[in-house]
Design a protein around this nucleic acid. Structure first.
Lengths: 246, 246
DNA sequence: CCTGGTTACGGGTGGCGTAAAGATG
DNA sequence: CATCTTTACGCCACCCGTAACCAGG
């Protein structure tokens, strides 16, 4: 007995005829007889009584019918569940935000699930589960389940609410994620480490910058959408990678 | 994908290794790889991440695992249900009572279900469902799903609580089932049809005879168990048949 | 080298179609 | 004889085993 037999049985049951079931399913009549016989042998019971005008189910036939419906329903359920699960995107918070801001690069509708992890967790997470797409500053080259699809750069700048003079005295907000590319670059650029203020939530950093209580290295697109001022004349390019599952 | 693949997948999942799963299931290792690949292709998803020390399930692997458990449970359920249902006995009330009284002929433990029908319904019932055994006065020869296993006779007599003189004035109790062999015989034997009293329940007839409010043509075994008196010196033999499902 | 997964290939079984043969009204 | 099921037989695909190969510690 195999999965296809369930469909065959169901058709026989609902149509009440081996001939008609064969026709509807596109099988030879003989095959239906054979498959039914296989099922009956395997279950060690008669499933249908053969009559002149077709077949009628026995009690065990009725029992088996409901089972076939259950099993096929379960099968259909799992395939849709898997299809739902399939399109997942893994990325770090700042990258995903950027991609969502510059809409068109990443659309919610393309993915059933978007998982945002801190950079330090992305390698581990990508190893433990297979994502359709991974957007990250990290290096996944030693993970055989993914291949590099493309490398892109995100244009950033130090953003503040207002003028330079004003901004010079503000704390510099960074993520506490040690591998975060924005943080690393900020630490490189900044002489006076005492100005650093670690904030773990991207949204909180945005808010503080908008309110004028800090500056932060952020994607340039934020300057427009949030109406912020770039503190550098030239933008900074931070490379990130998009990996695809094999 | 077939039913066996579910077992294979389950083993892989629970053991975490293709090699070990193959060993445990008695398959060649290569076959496990192939079957897994088939499943992954058919579901269009990776189910396991291959690592150096075995395999670990992906999210879709986890989803599929629970589905395999459900399906296999449903499959196990239906087979036991069918096995339970299988051994059924169909017979008319008086015959079944007789067979149960003379225990050894029919044992409750041999059948999961004993269906008792009036004679007039037995042919129909036997046609609509397949019973393991049918015990009946009726003729099932034109039903191809059964074959005659043996013909037996049941020894009967007119039974009463006490003496003949007493019994002569009592009503004669019969089943109202027009095809019932006991009824037919009683009507043949009895000249005075006005004495006939139709009672549909065998148990009610027994009770009335025991209480001395009627006589009835009943299996001889009832005379002993119920301590009744035979009204005829020679017993009457009524033939019945035991049919078996093919 | 050892462990664990993958690929290549050949044999046997099982699913399917064609065709013909029962069975029943 | 018309309709439905069953049997006979042959073809092809699929399942499985053997064996060799590949990757990582």
């Amino acid at each position: 007995m195999n999965f296809n037999d369930l469909k065959i049985f169901q058709a026989i049951y609902e149509i009440g005829s081996l001939n008609k079931a064969a026709e509807q399913l596109g099988y030879a009549q003989s095959n239906i007889t054979t498959r039914l016989k296989v099922m009956e042998t395997e279950l060690n019971t008669k499933l249908f009584l053969r009559t002149q005008k077709g077949v009628t189910p026995t009690k065990t036939g009725n029992i088996f019918y409901s089972a076939t419906l259950n099993i096929q329903a379960e099968l259909a359920k799992v395939t849709t569940q898997i299809d739902q699960q399939k399109k997942t995107l893994l990325g770090s918070e700042v990258l995903i935000s950027e991609l969502l801001n510059n809409s068109g690069l990443v659309s919610y509708s393309h993915f059933s699930k978007i998982v945002v992890k801190r950079q330090e967790n992305i390698v581990q997470e990508a190893a433990n589960n297979l994502y359709d797409l991974v957007v990250t500053f990290a290096d996944l080259n030693n993970n055989h389940n993914y291949h590099l699809q493309k490398t892109r750069a995100i244009k950033c700048n130090y953003l503040a609410r207002e003028s330079h003079a004003f901004a010079n005295n503000l704390p510099v907000l960074v993520n506490s994620d040690p591998i975060c590319a924005f943080r690393k670059r900020t630490l490189q650029d900044l002489a006076d480490k005492s100005r650093i203020l670690e904030i773990d939530s991207l949204q909180a950093i945005e808010m503080m910058v908008e309110q004028g209580s800090g500056i932060s290295l952020l994607p340039c697109s934020f300057a427009e959408t949030k109406n912020l001022v770039k503190l550098r004349t030239t933008d900074i390019s931070l490379e990130y990678k998009i990996y695809q599952s094999k």
